[in-house]
Nucleic acid binder design. Structure first.
Length: 700
DNA sequence: GCGGACTCTCTTTTT
DNA sequence: GAGAGTCCGC
């Protein structure tokens, strides 16, 4: 305990019962959890496997175990750790039949989920402008986050469509295919305990102590999940920071952490406020930004480090200029001795990585992008997983339908429909059905799959013990790899590389003794190839680029936050939501700022392309009014217009004259054509937004 | 059933 | 500006 300060020690050594640890950014949160677990094992004699640690990502779970092993040796590895989703899946693999599911169900990913809803709405002739699939899906998700099954969902109508009926239909379609979506995992695990007393008893008996990290991002069903699991022994420790709650859109409810004492009477409360991470100047900026939020525990992080250099804000011309400026700054940091891997660029939306990627590639600076299109969402990865699952006799109908015409086997839309009907009528599992038709008895569309079915059976016989090697034969002999090369050399090469990566991962997992079903579980819960690598210590020596959401829990010496503009941070979608949306965006910026240890650069652009259209954003409200002592602003460089100025030669930065409002300066522009709006700071009447078409502005 | 050309839509964040 | 969806001729 020598390495802990007194507040951390009190939290780590607190007795059983509910404990709330309010841990600000950089206050040694993980260290405190690790020590608390170590204390439970070493001092209180709790068996490691009777401790459950719930983390936010799989990677965090792995890291926790690694640090625990460092602290207390091999025992640390015995602690059960995982995300709400992965732990729920483990519960369901044992008891899903209590809810009417087969235990061999699979998990659908976001793409398939969306496709399912789309198909459902199309079959019912509901046009997307009457009910948008994404609205339908978010309504369903909302119900699930709130813990409501279709029967418990409110009677809701939207344009005369009964949403709760569609929810019920959606669940039925999923269970027909023996599938659950991500939210089902948690809801159904909670239902196991909610509705089945015997299962609840069995699950509760598994753990004596439960610890939850990033508690500010739990949603109501996760809250219930915890209550059901820990309600008896009440040995629940939660750690979090209300100022870092950034998953409201996923149902997270900050009130769980704000009102913890109400749900868990007699809870011990511990505050960690000494920040060991960032320089004083960076913390000052963070504190100034976050104190504007109303709905929070009043507190301020205390710096333990020297003041350091002032954070800086740089206004750029457009996203390419922004990327250039960032590149320049990063090279400067490098020349001052910071390694590439200690630098990160954290953006609001993944799309912002594009210009950065281009410039970094040209300049040869090593970089890695974390997130974006998830590894397991790539077409070729999903295809190969489907082949692999069928080869290993666990693939389902959806997976067979996925690859039935890849490569082309002459099965178009009609053929696939026929196939789906044949499969449903057979009442067999997809792989069993394939075994059956391998003998040659097949009618209609099914005939076209006989060669594939034969191939799978043959390879299985040849390869018996090493199905991971057999996969390669299947991909070769089926013509799948060949079909990829038709896509052009470059694209095929990157897809084949992804397939190799996946094959390596399959091999590793098999070597660890996982069954095919266990492997599919693992794959469906991971989303990046980053996580597949596990916690390999050799973090590549490259500049990291990722979304602000992904950056939660990480830290770097040098951080760049690009796109600090109205419409991007705060995001337009959040602006439409009003105050609560804006608070969350402010927390997002706070998370970004507090990732930095020593150097921090914020940038914004005067003009930025959004899906092919030029926009002229204003600087973010979060930093616009900050004094130079807190955020040093580089003086405005003369504006270079890369795009066509608007009709009449209007562009941001120019002096203009209006017939009634008088003289002023153009601050920003948005929209295009007749809908283009201009924001002007008038000398006498202040800021006005005008429709360019009608405003009769003249450049002075 | 397939491929090419065309149109339309959609852009937040993730387990 | 990309990706998905649609239409049409073969």
């Amino acid at each position: 305990m020598a390495e802990l300060n007194s507040a951390q020690t009190r939290a780590a050594e607190a007795a059983g019962g509910p404990q709330l640890i309010l841990a600000g950014a950089g206050t040694g949160k993980t260290r405190t959890i690790v020590h608390r677990i170590g204390h439970l094992i070493a001092a209180c004699g709790v068996a490691p496997h009777r401790i459950l640690a719930v983390t936010f990502t799989n990677k965090a779970a792995a890291e926790l175990k690694a640090r625990l092993s460092l602290l207390i040796g091999d025992d640390g590895g015995g602690v059960t750790s995982g995300t709400f989703h992965s732990i729920s899946l483990k519960f369901l693999r044992r008891y899903a039949d209590a809810l009417g599911y087969t235990r061999s169900f699979q998990v659908v990913d976001a793409d398939d989920q969306k496709a399912l809803v789309k198909r459902m709405l199309k079959n019912r002739n509901i046009a997307t402008d009457r009910l948008h699939p994404s609205y339908m899906l978010s309504w369903i998700e909302h119900c699930k986050h709130a813990g409501m099954t279709p029967e418990q969902a409110p009677d809701s109508e939207w344009n005369g469509i009964r949403l709760h009926e569609l929810y019920a239909q959606y669940q039925q379609e999923l269970s027909q295919h023996e599938r659950m979506d991500f939210s089902d995992l948690i809801l159904n695990a909670a239902r196991l305990m909610r509705e089945h007393a015997d299962v609840a008893v069995a699950l509760r008996a598994g753990f004596d102590h439960v610890l939850v990290d990033e508690y500010q991002d739990t949603n109501p069903i996760q809250h219930e999940w915890l209550q059901l699991l820990c309600g008896e022994h009440r040995n629940l420790t939660v750690v979090g920071d209300d100022d870092q709650s950034i998953y409201g859109w996923r149902g997270a409810d900050v009130s769980h952490i704000l009102d913890f004492e109400l749900s868990w009477r007699g809870a011990g409360i511990h505050r960690l406020e000494e920040n060991y991470r960032s320089t004083g100047a960076i913390l000052q900026l963070a504190n100034v930004i976050i104190c504007e939020n109303a709905d929070r525990h009043e507190k301020a992080l205390k710096a333990t480090r020297e003041d350091g250099e002032k954070p800086e804000w740089k206004v750029c011309n457009d996203e390419y200029d922004e990327a250039r400026q960032i590149l320049g700054r990063i090279e400067r940091w490098r020349s001052r001795g910071y390694p590439w891997c200690e630098m990160a660029i954290l953006y609001r939306s993944n799309r912002q990585s594009l210009p950065l990627e281009q410039l970094f590639r040209e300049s040869g600076i090593p970089y890695r992008i974390i997130g974006g299109v998830g590894f397991f969402e790539r077409m070729e990865v999903k295809d190969v997983l489907a082949y692999w699952a069928l080869l290993n006799r666990c693939g389902d109908v959806l997976q067979l339908l996925r690859i039935c015409n890849r490569p082309k086997r002459g099965l178009g839309a009609m053929g696939q429909e026929q196939l789906a009907a044949i499969l449903a009528a057979s009442g067999m599992r997809a792989y069993e059905w394939l075994d059956l038709i391998a003998g040659g008895q097949a009618e209609g569309a099914a005939k076209k799959l006989v060669p594939l079915a034969r191939l799978l059976v043959d390879v299985r016989q040849d390869m018996e013990a090493q199905a991971d090697r057999g996969l390669n034969m299947v991909l070769e002999a089926s013509g799948y790899l060949q079909s990829l090369s038709a896509m052009g050399e470059l694209e095929a090469a990157s897809r084949i590389e992804n397939i190799r990566t996946l094959q390596d991962y399959i091999e590793i997992s098999m070597a660890q003794g996982l069954t095919p079903v266990e492997f599919m579980d693992r794959a469906s819960l991971l989303q990046s190839s980053e996580e597949m690598k596990g916690n390999a210590q050799d973090e590549e020596n490259a500049v990291s680029m990722m979304s602000l959401h992904r950056a939660k829990g990480l830290e770097f010496d040098c951080v760049v936050l690009p796109g600090v503009e109205e419409g991007l941070l705060p995001h337009q979608r959040a602006l439409d939501e009003g105050e609560s949306g804006i608070s969350e965006e402010r927390r997002l910026l706070y998370v970004g700022v507090t990732r930095a240890r020593e150097q921090l650069l914020l940038t914004s652009a005067r003009q930025r392309r959004f899906f092919g259209e030029m926009h002229f954003p204003l600087p973010s409200r979060f930093i616009k009014k900050l004094p130079a002592e807190i955020l040093q602003q580089e003086s405005f460089a003369p504006l270079t217009i890369h795009a066509q100025p608007a009709p009449g030669g209007i562009a941001p930065g120019l002096q203009v004259c209006h017939p009634t409002f008088g003289e002023g300066m153009v601050l920003g522009m948005e929209g295009s054509g007749d809908a283009m709006r201009v924001t002007v700071q008038f000398r006498k009447v202040g800021i006005k937004q005008l429709m360019l078409k009608y405003a009769a502005l003249q450049v002075v």
